[in-house]
């Protein structure tokens, strides 16, 4: 009996010591686009700062923002800015407007199948294709074949970005096949010689990037580190961290590290672009 009690005491002391050493884990939730990025940041950070635990999960930008409002995550990763009604909810609960921190840039790439001779499209052509007004590659200077459209689900931040910045807020054609996740879109386009898809530039493996013209007269530009960084590639966006209030303590240390050259360098390695 005595040995049982003493071992319990030791166990409790150990648990207390670990807890005191580790601090509270930082939880991160949100955008599926940013999951890989967040995980790399967390791994590296945990290696460098032994003892701090950072937990990263996906679910989508909207899911992350909802979790932030419900208080179930410390940091929300989002690939789109918060909507006014979301900000309103945050204010009602916590009397803050929330803290928006841009942490990286993402180039939104348009993918072709590798066998497709197409090289470039203007935003206007892209809009016509995704609204279903142009249905054959021939109409935009390609071969005579029906265009097969791939896109993301309407719950994704990427869907909203494409709708706002390419379609000017108009509706997608009902023929767009919506797939769960950018990886699925890339996979579908890589298997479909007549396919076209869109998603983060970090994912473009096994498919060809389309060079984008801002309008019919401007030069076509491929998404590269340089063109996204200087803003000459037209389809880019900020990726955000959202917090309920100004970061402090362990969270501040982590956010500062993400914004430091070491953190930004890691973003480049994953396929995103520094600020």
């Amino acid at each position: 009996m005595r040995s049982l009690i003493s071992s319990l005491v030791i166990l409790a002391a150990l648990a207390f010591a670990t807890a005191a050493h580790a601090g509270r884990p930082i939880t991160i939730k949100g955008s599926d686009t940013m999951v890989i990025l967040g995980q790399r940041w967390a791994e590296k950070y945990m290696n460098e700062m032994s003892g701090q635990v950072v937990m990263v999960t996906g679910g989508g930008s909207g899911t992350g923002i909802a979790a932030l409002i419900n208080g179930t995550t410390d940091i929300c990763q989002a690939s789109r800015p918060m909507k006014p009604d979301e900000k309103l909810k945050l204010r009602d609960r916590y009397q803050t407007m929330g803290q928006e921190i841009a942490v990286a840039r993402d180039g939104l790439a348009v993918y072709f199948n590798e066998s497709n001779p197409m090289q470039k499209l203007s935003i206007e052509q892209l809009k016509a294709i995704y609204m279903g007004q142009v249905t054959n590659w021939k109409q935009v200077g390609g071969k005579d074949a029906t265009i097969v459209l791939y896109g993301r689900e309407n719950s994704s931040g990427t869907y909203v970005f494409f709708k706002d910045n390419v379609l000017g807020g108009r509706d997608f054609s009902p023929r767009v096949q919506t797939l769960p996740g950018t990886a699925a879109v890339v996979n579908a386009v890589s298997k479909d010689p007549n396919g076209i898809g869109y998603g983060g530039a970090a994912y473009a493996k096994g498919v060809k990037d389309c060079a984008i013209q801002k309008d019919a007269k401007s030069t076509a530009i491929l998404p590269t580190a340089a063109t996204v960084k200087d803003g000459s590639y037209p389809l880019w966006r900020h990726l955000y961290f959202y917090l309920r209030k100004k970061p402090e303590g362990d969270t501040k240390k982590f956010v500062d590290w993400v914004l430091s050259p070491a953190g930004q360098q890691l973003a480049t390695q994953v396929g995103y672009f520094p600020l």
């Binding site: 679910g59 899911t63 009604d85 309407n154 719950s155």
Partner: peptide, 8 residues
């Protein structure tokens, strides 16, 4: 399944 996760 696709839409319920993010609706308000």
């Amino acid at each position: 399944a696709a839409e319920l996760a993010e609706v308000v």
